[in-house]
């Protein structure tokens, strides 16, 4: 199974805090899986364990069919990991960063030039080769970090919130690169706090309070939402929300930007309340599903 990931009943705690609570997840080679969840869900702990940077307390964690406890060197050689924080050298140029990681991962000199050329092309960083990494924009920094991660052509990529704090255009560009890599057969596990990025993954794993609540294709996930969902807009969302929560049998009322998502069981329906500018029944989004799963898990 080149590049596959297999997690079986994995748990990890820091002192008294249970960071990851008995999760299981299997990722096939060449699959792009998104790990989605709020801060503190256990995403980073899971990823660091996959990268052999943390040791599991319980359960089995395999990368490329190898145990992260015993096969540290072999896994590190075939895996690419991009930590959450920008972890390159700001006082080195783009080219010096790439060269350093190429040498660190033992990329043979004969292949290095070609490899760098490919990476420059897809990251469009070539014109900035001599710029200090610290002087790059957020999006370019992330592309450089990804390039450094890819320098040794890893079969498995672990990316910890690579698009956090990056502008929307650069984020789209970044995801295009990820899907391109997936098409080349690289197994990718990527975490993100952005729900809309879930749709770009082959499968999505929802993580919350150390547990995985659901794993499925984005299109399938929305079918897990068991209620009727209405979108309500109005000028005074707070009082609309209070009214819907107190005076109707709404199961949940969530604020989504400038509108409300209100869900009802099959027996009830929403009658447009006073003050509502528009009411319409809609298909649930991934975020609706996640909020539903979070509520029901508590």
């Amino acid at each position: 199974m080149p590049g596959s990931i297999k997690i079986n009943s994995f748990s990890k705690s820091y002192g008294d805090i249970l960071a990851v609570n008995n999760i299981s997840l299997a990722i096939d080679p060449g699959e792009l899986v998104g790990l989605i969840g709020p801060d503190g869900a256990g995403k980073t702990t899971t990823m660091r364990t996959l990268c052999t940077l943390l040791v599991p307390d319980a359960g089995e964690v395999l990368v490329d069919g190898r145990d992260v406890r015993t096969n540290v060197a072999a896994i590190r050689a075939m895996l690419g990991y991009m930590p959450q924080r920008f972890s390159l050298y700001p006082d080195l140029t783009v080219a010096q960063n790439l060269n350093f990681f190429a040498d660190l991962f033992g990329v043979p000199p004969a292949e290095k030039a070609e490899r760098l050329q490919t990476l420059y092309q897809f990251s469009k960083l070539e014109p900035f080769r001599k710029r200090l990494a610290g002087a790059l924009s957020g999006g370019m920094k992330q592309k450089l970090a990804l390039s450094c991660t890819l320098i040794h052509t890893p079969r498995t990529l672990i990316l910890d919130e690579p698009t956090t704090g990056v502008d929307p255009v650069s984020r789209r560009e970044f995801w295009n690169i990820l899907r391109q890599l997936r098409d080349e057969g690289v197994t990718i596990l990527v975490s993100t706090p952005y729900m809309e990025e879930a749709d770009l993954c082959d499968r999505v794993a929802f993580m919350y309070q150390g547990r995985i609540l659901a794993v499925d294709k984005p299109a399938q996930l929305v079918h897990r939402f068991p209620y009727k969902l209405y979108e309500v807009s109005g000028s005074d969302l707070q009082s609309l929300r209070a009214y819907l929560e107190d005076e109707t049998d709404a199961l949940s009322v969530q604020i989504f930007g400038d509108r409300l998502h209100v869900s009802y069981g099959p027996e009830s329906a929403l009658i447009a309340p006073a003050g509502a500018e528009s009411v319409q029944q809609i298909e649930p989004s991934i975020e609706d599903v996640f909020l539903y799963l979070m509520q029901t898990s508590a």
């Binding site: 940077l53 060197a73 590190r76 050689a77 895996l79 990991y81 930590p83 390159l88 050298y89 660190l104």
Partner: peptide, 10 residues
Amino acid sequence: GTMEQILVSP
């Protein structure tokens, strides 16, 4: 955090 990046190398 660069140590994290160095450590995952061989």
